[in-house]
Design a protein around this nucleic acid. Structure first.
Length: 286
DNA sequence: AAGAGGCCCTGATAGC
DNA sequence: TGCTATCAGGGCCTCT
């Protein structure tokens, strides 16, 4: 679910709320996530102060004192919620708009002096991982490709990576080892803006198309962040802030609707690539 | 070695 | 109403 922009939004709201605060207690309600939460997880975290909050691709990184780190990955359905002590006032820190703390699937609660942060993940594709040193952190991201917003995602890098690649461009853009942070929504949008057929093999992506991919991946991600990310599924209790980039979708979830490009009379089609929904206009994307 | 496919989960929705 | 099937923003593992 959460792709780079959505994790960026979570990062910003956490920075606003928990930076330089001490974690007083940790309650583990369910260890079962993609990877089981470490046995000594609580012991490692309780009493430590949060000294920084950053993000790398779709990972949220909480920097704790004593040179250790807490990594969050949100999988398809992971969310964070802030609950205040006094009136149980609830703030959703994620792109899901949920006014009330979900009753089911709260995995971990982090207690601060006047509120708690709850990690909730129905599908359990996300995970939390404690890292013991900066070195471990560096190794953790060793095999992850550059983000579209970073300068090393450039023409020469992509050109080299696409050489002789038989894999289609859609799967390549979803491959976090090639470029990190993109998911199904943003890849669909980037390929539409770049006028590229998602089924084209990497090796047939010409220089012009490479430049378009660079341009639009940056543009779309920046705009999505500005709009607060994309909120696909609203919970029933609406209120408060939600992302609005879904209103800007040109192809994602727009099957059978008109192509929005000027002078194009095509309709958006839904095809399946590697078992995942792919939306495109076959007249625009060649 | 690269690439395709299965699989890990729950929940919402559509169709009968 | 209650079944079944399908779909969902991800990525790891295994097999060829």
């Amino acid at each position: 679910m959460p792709e780079l922009p959505e994790v960026e939004i979570i990062k910003k709201s956490l920075q606003k709320n928990v930076l330089f605060k001490k974690i007083d207690n940790v309650l583990i309600k369910n260890r079962n996530l993609r990877f089981k939460i470490q046995r000594n997880f609580k012991k490692l975290i309780v009493g430590k102060k949060i000294i920084n909050i950053t993000r790398k691709s779709k990972y949220l990184i909480v920097h704790l004192e004593k040179n250790c780190f807490l990594i969050f990955h949100f999988g398809m359905s992971g969310t964070l919620h802030l609950i205040r002590n006094n009136n149980m006032h609830h703030t959703n820190l994620s792109f899901y708009n949920c006014k009330i703390l979900p009753k089911k699937h709260n995995h971990v609660e982090f207690f601060f002096s006047s509120f708690k942060i709850v990690y909730n993940d129905p599908r359990r594709f996300g995970f939390l991982k404690f890292l013991f040193s900066y070195n471990e952190l560096k190794n953790f991201f060793n095999n992850i490709g550059p983000e579209p917003l970073e300068s090393n995602f450039n023409f020469n890098y992509i050109k080299k990576k696409l050489r002789n690649k038989k894999k289609n461009i859609k799967n390549l853009l979803l491959d976090q080892k090639f470029v990190s942070g993109l998911g199904n929504i943003y890849v669909n949008e980037i390929l539409y803006y770049s006028k590229i057929n998602p089924n084209i093999r990497g090796k047939y992506i010409n220089n012009y198309k490479i430049k378009q991919i660079i341009k639009y991946s940056k543009e779309i991600l920046k705009k999505a962040i500005k709009k607060g990310g994309s909120t696909i599924k609203d919970f029933k209790n609406v209120g408060g802030k939600i992302g609005s980039f879904q209103k800007e979708f040109k192809v994602y979830n727009r099957e059978n609707r008109n192509c929005l490009r000027k002078d194009c009379s095509g309709k958006i089609e839904r095809i399946v690539i590697s078992n995942r929904s792919t939306f495109m206009c076959k007249y625009c994307q060649k």
